[in-house]
Design a protein around this nucleic acid. Structure first.
Length: 807
DNA sequence: AGCACGCCGACT
DNA sequence: GTCGGCGTGCTC
């Protein structure tokens, strides 16, 4: 038998199956979807078996070296999904497969050197010989490179001459936690065994009695058993050898939520509106039909309860469910809701888990221990075999698009899988992406609306503050008079407030007041960000840092200071303004440590602070009954980013933030400060008017030929030399112009908003198109044609179909 | 990507 | 005459 194997070499020349002979003894073992180790040229590689065939057309076929997995780690569906991804996202098939698995399942390649010809080596390279014999065991190549680079040359020659041998190893980084379990053998009568025992074997009898007193044949953990009975390992081993007891290794799952106290919940009564949304979804689940539902529900309208009840239906039918949540909203509150309803049926996948924990959660899914996964983007690849529903909450979130290879969008993957499994895909949002809403309007998706909040709470009142007015009235602080007063008012009533600072595009840069010089990264064309903590300037793109200078590097003036507004700066101003307020700051700095996110939120929920101040991360999913005021400090910072989605993002963010107020009995208020309060994104957000925003933004998109009216593809070229980048981008642009239809618009070559990152110049070419059946083909050709030149010349090309970030 | 093969210059 | 530079091409 022949196995078709995709090898772990992510280049276009090897992006196809290679034939390998399946040795007779592995014949019954090897199945598509398994990882195998195969010889490839002179080395050994990890590969994915994608098919089995009786014959091969090739003469020279090497056998599979070994099989890594006991059961396939990718189902047939996921294998198919991988090749679909490689075509549509223009990535290599292996990259797609690896993206579907936890990181620990990537191969670890190691090279080991050992002595093959003692005599010859000793004669020619005595130094190397001494070194090698001192080490005894084969020596890992990388450790020599790191620690004894002086030997490398001689070693290389020794290998060439055959005095040293090289062994390639493919290692797997995964490590299951395993425990030894002891249980009585099924067919053994313990009473009889006890009688048969040697009189002197007190310890062994003690063990048998222990199992006699236990219900049925319940296994016990070996280590605990030994401790409890005060016997030693050989006593148990003796019984195992006699065949009375059975020892087996059982995987133990690390459970990050094992200790938390989550109370079970049961289904809530739905409102008529919720009922109406749920009904067609349930019908699809019952009858096995695929539709995409866009569930447009205002914040607080009870979307999650609909998800929960749909999942319940899915579980009752013996099927499985995937719930995607943006990373930032994967808060403990959210996880608790699912754990509370479905208990141990739920696996949770988020970036807070370490690699081992992620692997364990993945295995819970793979081994069928759970039926529900709640997770961020990559959870869409959960290896379920019988999916009954896929839910994407906050579907408009940009984090669903992966910004590196494979550049997939979780929504597209979900729809692929939903089609395969004939199950519904539910997209939920208070502010759907324009693309999604447009599709729903066209009838491609089924639109379901929830216009009312549960318990009929009204939407919070939104006040727009024109900050230009404040400045005119002599208020130069970052807090308007109104916001200041309202904060004090809440403090009086001991109610809580949330202050939201939209920091994106608002980095705290350092500028000289005399000459206007802004300190920039020497490797990237972007200004450095000031970090107060260590009085350092950091580059967010390449990690470069330097200490804050005392004088301007350009004019030597000492009037150099930082501008912009970070959370730290706001916190300072806030405590200066209202010293008695207890402020909790939440940003990347205060939440870096594991679990600190949860801790901070808990502290706020427990009323240990009056004001929660934070960035993006507090915009989602927070639900505190005592919060009655939400302040947005600078609503329009994002509006002026060079991004055609700037208005949409601003609208979404303001709507989400406003939704944090007054979700319970107490009425909520929102204060939005901006310098452009009459911008339509801000106005419509203030009126909670999605449709109004949608209609206006759609006109903008149409007139500027942007999505959803046109599709986009973005080609970015980078190299250390500027003329080269321009040159290559130009020729790519020409190829595109010749190969695409007249209706396609090709913009470029143009310099992107950040023209240089990590000392590499960048240039782009953007394609706007409506219908280009040939596009993927052409882009694929461009990628593989230039790739050879690219790798050896250190040129880089990245192609993003449907890009989200245009930088 | 790695690695071998192979074809030319600068050294014992 | 050989060591070693890195251009070219292949890997089942």
């Amino acid at each position: 038998m022949i196995a078709k194997v995709i090898v772990d070499v992510p280049v276009s020349q090897t992006d196809r199956p290679f034939d390998y002979l399946i040795p007779d003894d592995l014949e019954p073992v090897v199945e598509p979807g398994m990882r195998v180790v195969v010889p490839f040229g002179p080395r050994k590689l990890l590969g994915f078996v994608v098919g089995k065939e009786q014959h091969s057309e090739l003469k020279k076929i090497k056998p599979i070296e070994s099989v890594v997995d006991h059961t396939p780690v990718l189902t047939d569906e996921l294998l198919e999904l991988g090749s679909w991804l490689s075509e549509t996202a223009l990535c290599f098939t292996v990259s797609a497969y690896l993206a579907m698995l936890p990181a620990v399942m990537k191969a670890n390649y190691k090279k080991y050197i050992s002595v093959a010809d003692d005599k010859a080596l000793q004669e020619n390279y005595p130094g190397v010989y001494d070194f090698m014999t001192k080490q005894q065991k084969p020596v890992e190549w990388e450790s020599i490179v790191k620690n004894q680079p002086s030997y490398l040359k001689d070693l290389q020659n020794g290998i060439k001459k055959g005095w040293l041998s090289v062994e390639q190893k493919v290692e797997d980084k995964r490590k299951e936690k395993r425990v030894k379990m002891i249980s009585p053998a099924d067919y053994i009568n313990l009473h009889k065994a006890l009688e048969d025992m040697d009189k002197r074997a007190e310890k062994q009898k003690k063990v048998l009695r222990f199992f006699l007193n236990r219900s049925q044949n319940e296994p016990a953990v070996l280590s605990e058993l030994l401790k409890e009975l005060g016997v030693s390992r050989p006593s148990v081993k003796g019984l195992v050898d006699k065949g009375y007891l059975i020892e087996q290794e059982v995987e133990q799952f690390r459970d990050a939520y094992a200790r938390s106290d989550i109370k079970p919940t049961s289904a809530l009564t739905l409102t008529d509106e919720q009922e109406e949304v749920l009904k067609p979804i349930e019908e699809d689940i019952a009858s096995g039909h695929h539709h995409v539902y866009l569930c447009h529900g205002v914040t607080g309208s009870g979307k999650t309860e609909i998800y929960l009840q749909a999942i319940e239906k899915v579980i009752n039918m013996g099927k499985e469910a995937i719930v995607l949540v943006p990373e930032i909203a994967l808060t403990p509150q959210m996880v608790h809701r699912f754990k509370g309803r479905f208990g141990s049926e739920v696996a949770v996948m988020h970036s807070g888990l370490n690699k081992g924990e992620k692997y364990d959660e993945w295995r819970k899914i793979h081994t069928g221990k759970v039926r529900v996964v709640v997770g961020a983007r990559s959870a869409v690849f959960a290896p379920f075999k019988n999916l009954g529903i896929i839910i994407i909450d906050e579907e408009h979130e940009t984090s669903y698009k992966q910004e590196e290879n494979p550049r997939y969008h979780a929504r597209d993957v979900a729809i692929f899988r939903g089609t395969f499994h004939n199950c519904p895909v539910v997209l939920g949002s208070a502010t759907p992406a324009l693309e999604s809403f447009a599709r729903a309007q066209k009838g491609v998706y089924r639109l379901a609306s929830l216009a009312k909040r549960i318990n009929n709470q009204s939407m919070p009142e939104v006040m727009m503050i024109d900050m230009r007015e404040e400045i005119r009235n002599g208020n130069r602080s970052m807090f308007s008079k109104v916001l200041h007063d309202k904060l004090l008012d809440r403090l009086d009533k001991s109610e809580q407030s949330v202050l939201f600072l939209n920091r994106r595009g608002y980095s705290t840069f350092v500028m000289c007041r005399d000459c206007g010089h802004v300190i920039q990264c020497p490797h990237c064309d972007i200004s450095l960000t000031y970090h107060r903590r260590h009085a350092e300037l950091k580059c967010h793109y390449c990690g470069y840092q330097e200490s804050l200078p005392n004088s301007c590097p350009s004019c030597q003036s000492e009037h150099i200071r930082y501008f912009g507004s970070g959370t730290q700066k706001v916190e300072e101003a806030l405590t200066r303004m209202i010293p008695e307020a207890r402020v909790l700051r939440m940003d990347v700095d205060t939440t870096r440590r594991k679990g600190s996110h949860e801790k901070l939120l808990k502290a706020f929920g427990d009323g240990k602070a009056d004001i929660l101040l934070g960035t993006q991360m507090i915009a989602k999913g927070l639900d505190f009954p005592n919060v009655t005021l939400v302040g947005v400090l600078a609503a329009d910072t994002m509006l002026h980013l060079p991004d055609f989605r700037a208005s949409e993002k601003t609208f979404q963010l303001l709507t989400q933030v406003s939704g944090r107020a007054g979700r319970h009995e107490k009425k909520g208020e929102v204060v939005v400060q901006s310098y452009t309060p009459d911008h339509y994104a801000i106005v419509h957000a203030g009126n909670h008017d999605y449709n109004g925003f949608y209609n206006q933004e759609m006109r903008e998109r149409q007139s500027h030929r942007y999505p959803p009216y046109y599709f986009l593809a973005l080609v970015t070229v980078s190299h250390t030399e500027f003329p080269k980048v321009v040159d290559v981008t130009e020729s790519i642009t020409n190829v595109l112009k010749q190969s695409l239809t007249q209706t396609a618009q090709i913009l470029g070559p143009v310099a992107p908003p950040i023209p240089r990152i990590k000392d590499r110049y960048r240039y782009q070419c953007m394609i706007k198109y409506k219908n280009e059946p040939n596009l993927l083909n052409v882009l694929n050709k461009i990628q593989s044609h230039y790739q050879e030149a690219f790798t050896k010349d250190n040129l880089h090309i990245s192609i993003d179909v449907n890009p989200f970030i245009l930088m």
